[in-house]
């Protein structure tokens, strides 16, 4: 995964609360290999009617070049499916601004280079009003933690560790393996001091 610290694109408002991960990608698409791309599944059933025709007034249908989403509270709640993030990323979305994110979703986002930026409800409303039905040129700066749209600048909250990870594009497995000694020690101590922790049948057989 490559890191990033600045992004220029277009922002669009998705003024809906509780956009859960079942909305972001309905479960029936989740057996698709990632190599085929998940972008076409993004918000599939909200963007289309029962016959597969797209709703022309849906924000992402009107502005399918948008790469920054401003959404309502509790974005990405529900299922842990990382496919919800794949759908966003593969559709070209780089950042989502909302008053709150599902905890699992936010972690998944960071692991895929997608910024889950927390803003206040007031700022959300301000952005909804400013963007309305349009897509406006916008810039996200991770270093300074702000979103710039025209002359409007809005700060956002992001865990400092997550910010560093996004900027560097780090892979956790590589990082973790640098703690190999500590992990092995922990595992050995557990085996000696807390034998009940290992599954009984496994202990018996090994």
């Amino acid at each position: 995964m490559s890191g990033w610290s600045q992004h220029q694109g277009h922002a669009v408002a998705l003024p809906i609360h509780n956009v859960d991960t079942d909305q972001l990608i309905p479960s029936r698409f989740m057996s698709t290999p990632r190599s085929e791309g998940y972008g076409r599944f993004l918000l599939h059933d909200l963007r289309r009617d029962a016959h597969g025709e797209t709703h022309s007034d849906f924000p992402l249908n009107r502005h399918d070049h948008a790469s920054i989403l401003v959404a309502g509270r509790n974005f990405g709640g529900g299922s842990s499916r990382e496919a919800a993030v794949y759908a966003l990323v593969d559709a070209g979305i780089r950042a989502v601004f909302a008053p709150g994110f599902g905890d699992i979703f936010a972690g998944n986002a960071i692991n895929n280079g997608l910024l889950p930026a927390r803003i206040s409800e007031e700022e959300m409303n301000l952005l909804f009003q400013g963007l309305a039905d349009t897509a406006l040129a916008a810039e996200v700066c991770l270093e300074k933690r702000h979103l710039q749209i025209g002359d409007q600048r809005i700060g956002f909250d992001l865990d400092p560790g997550w910010r560093t990870k996004l900027i560097n594009g780090w892979d956790d497995i590589d990082l973790t393996l640098t703690y190999r000694t500590e992990i092995d020690r922990h595992s050995q101590v557990l085996k000696q001091r807390a034998p009940w922790i290992r599954p009984a049948q496994i202990t018996k057989n090994s």
Binding site: R81, E82, A83, I104, F105, N108, N111, D172, I173, T176
Partner: peptide, 8 residues
Amino acid sequence: IGATEVAH
């Protein structure tokens, strides 16, 4: 946890 974390 998500898929990247499962892999981890």
